[in-house]
């Protein structure tokens, strides 16, 4: 009498399928977590540079906002890991006494972007919001 021992082909295939699903899921989770952590790090760096720039632009005289160069005036050393990056400032005037100043940092070949806006009002005074 022939006595067969071991697993059948179907059993082996099902086992392999389960193993593949488990390993693939683990790898996907691992890479996704890693990607999100990297993006969080990048965002934290970008917003530090953005908030520094806001500190400067909120103190520029209202009448001089349009005459400023459309680039960051603060030290952007913090953005070093994001190189090559692009930092820009845009001033919009929706009303004569209102200006919207938008600061933008783009990196990762323009695929990632962080921006921050402040609204400046002509209060007639100096050094105010």
């Amino acid at each position: 009498m022939s006595k067969e021992r071991g697993f059948s082909l179907v059993e082996v295939l099902v086992g392999l399928l389960i193993l593949t699903i488990v390993i693939t899921t683990t790898i996907v989770m691992f890479t996704e977590r890693h990607r999100r952590l990297r993006q969080a790090n990048e965002t934290i760096l970008a917003y530090q540079a953005l908030s520094n720039e806001v500190e400067i632009w909120r103190r520029i005289d209202f009448a001089q906002l349009d005459g400023q160069p459309p680039t960051f005036q603060s030290d952007t050393s913090i953005l070093q890991p994001l190189k090559p990056f692009n930092a820009a400032v845009k001033v919009d005037t929706p009303r004569a006494d209102i200006k919207n100043v938008t600061f933008t940092v783009r990196w990762n070949k323009g695929q990632r972007e962080a921006h921050l806006s402040i609204l400046r009002a002509d209060t007639g005074g100096k050094g105010l919001w």
């Binding site: 530090q48 103190r59 050393s77 913090i78 005074g125 050094g127 105010l128």
Partner: peptide, 13 residues
């Protein structure tokens, strides 16, 4: 030795 925090704070008027 990588710059991790760089924040400018300005007193208000």
């Amino acid at each position: 030795n990588q710059l991790a925090i760089d924040q400018i704070f300005l007193p208000r008027a």
